[in-house]
């Protein structure tokens, strides 16, 4: 059997890619997809623990995470549409009028 650390490492790499993407990329859609990637990395972690602890709790948690991610996507994409209508671009730097 593949040991748990392999799965956890994969999840950690995915999470890191997601987090870096949010920080580096400037396209809103890409940033949003990177957030989704982070959430999926978390899901993978949950499932791994759930499998190796012989419990279903973690898998149930994954369903909740997926539901929340879907709700978040609905709101997020609506906001992105609003941005693109106003500025004709998906560049987040265009949406940076407030600064101190």
């Amino acid at each position: 059997m593949v040991p748990a650390t392999h799965y956890l490492a994969l999840a950690a790499i995915l999470f890191a890619i997601g987090a870096l993407g949010v920080i580096i990329r400037r396209n809103v859609i890409t940033m949003f997809m990177c957030v989704e990637l982070m959430l999926n990395a978390v899901n993978l972690t949950f499932i791994t623990f759930s499998r190796f602890l012989n419990q279903v709790d973690g898998q149930i948690f994954v369903f909740f995470v997926m539901t929340v991610a879907a709700a978040e996507a609905a709101v997020g994409l609506a906001l992105i549409v609003l941005l693109s209508r106003r500025t004709d671009t998906l560049d987040v730097d265009q949406a940076n009028t407030m600064k101190w």
């Binding site: 957030v35 709101v75 997020g76 906001l79 992105i80 941005l83 949406a95 407030m98």
Partner: peptide, 11 residues
């Protein structure tokens, strides 16, 4: 401003 605020908060 409001859209920007929501977008920042959301992301």
């Amino acid at each position: 401003k409001s859209t920007e605020s929501a977008l920042k908060y959301f992301l």
